[in-house]
């Protein structure tokens, strides 16, 4: 710390990011750089799926049952039009994977966003006000954390199936999954935010704001929130992986996204039916895509945790 009052021209924001400790930790770990590149490429490809996919797997007109079970292009019997081969319906696997990744990423991102919003709000008020509000929120969190995420999701899915008529269920499946994942993630966010809020609340800058006369909501929004965002970012990233995995698992189990809409989980489920015959590509490529996606997201989460808070688990 040597705060000389110099007026050097400030280096550009990009350079400062590159030169910061976080930037250094990023650069000095080739695996993290690779994970970052892979994650950006995959999420980008997923978002752009309608533009870059060779076929539209939803368009029944473009699907020809004659093409079914074509192996990948480089294998014997492959067709260059279908780079990774086709499934039992004749759908192009590459396109299905791109669209499937899109569904998976979307479900993951929206559910994490919902969970983070709810978790921040409840965690902030629990940590800031304490007392009965805190006890109430934390009891709900405790109770829900007793049950693993996947179990909560299964329960919600099960309940929704009993409450909704069967034909409506397929249309609403994606919302049910988003809700299920968000519900299973928010307690973790709330707990983290609450813990950080309690720490920040004890710091004197919060008391200083009170002395100035700021009300609790302004203090929470302006003072506490920016200081608890670091851990939230880490938790959100790690849980993006969890949510993508959760969706895939539910879809794989046949209780998630219906088979007519490709998600990585449903693709693996279909591929699994062909495990004993020779058509392994239908299993391997969606599976690898899912693993790579979640692995790179987790690597980024790990790096963020290292940078932001070495103690956070």
């Amino acid at each position: 710390m040597s705060p000389k009052m110099q007026n050097n021209p400030r280096p550009s924001l990009l350079y400062r990011m590159f030169d910061s400790d976080a930037g250094y930790k990023f650069r000095s770990s080739p695996i993290t750089v690779l994970a970052g590149v892979v994650a950006v490429l995959m999420i980008g490809a997923a978002i752009l799926a309608p533009l870059i996919a060779p076929f539209d797997p939803f368009n029944k007109a473009s699907i020809d049952l004659m093409n079914s079970l074509t192996p990948p292009a480089w294998q014997q019997g492959g067709n260059p039009a279908f780079l990774l081969g086709t499934d039992d319906q004749g759908r192009d696997l590459l396109s299905a994977i791109l669209y499937g990744t899109r569904t998976s990423v979307m479900v993951g991102a929206i559910s994490v966003l919902l969970a983070v919003t709810a978790g921040i709000f409840l965690g902030l008020i629990a940590g800031y006000f304490g007392g009965i509000v805190d006890a109430l929120v934390m009891r709900i969190v405790d109770i829900q954390m007793t049950f693993p995420a996947i179990m909560v999701a299964l329960m919600i899915d099960g309940v929704s199936r009993t409450l909704l008529p069967r034909d409506r269920h397929d249309d609403l499946a994606i919302f049910v999954i988003i809700l299920a994942m968000a519900l299973s993630i928010w307690p973790q966010v709330a707990r983290t935010v609450r813990a950080s809020t309690m720490v920040e609340r004890g710091r004197e800058y919060v008391q200083a704001a009170q002395v100035i006369g700021r009300g609790p909501w302004v203090i929470m929004a302006r003072h506490v929130l920016p200081n608890v965002m670091g851990p939230v970012l880490v938790i959100a990233t790690i849980n993006l992986g969890v949510a993508i995995l959760g969706e895939a698992t539910l879809s794989f189990l046949g209780v998630g996204i219906p088979a007519s809409e490709p998600s990585l989980g449903t693709l693996i489920r279909i591929g699994n039916n062909f495990i004993f015959s020779g058509e392994r590509w239908m299993l391997i490529y969606p599976g690898l895509t899912l693993a790579l996606l979640v692995l790179s997201v987790n690597l980024l989460g790990d790096w963020m945790r290292d940078v932001l808070d070495p103690k956070l688990r």
Binding site: E204, A209, P226
Partner: peptide
């Protein structure tokens, strides 16, 4: 070290 908001 704690009486000033580090983000402001």
């Amino acid at each position: 070290f704690s009486s000033l908001n580090p983000r402001m």
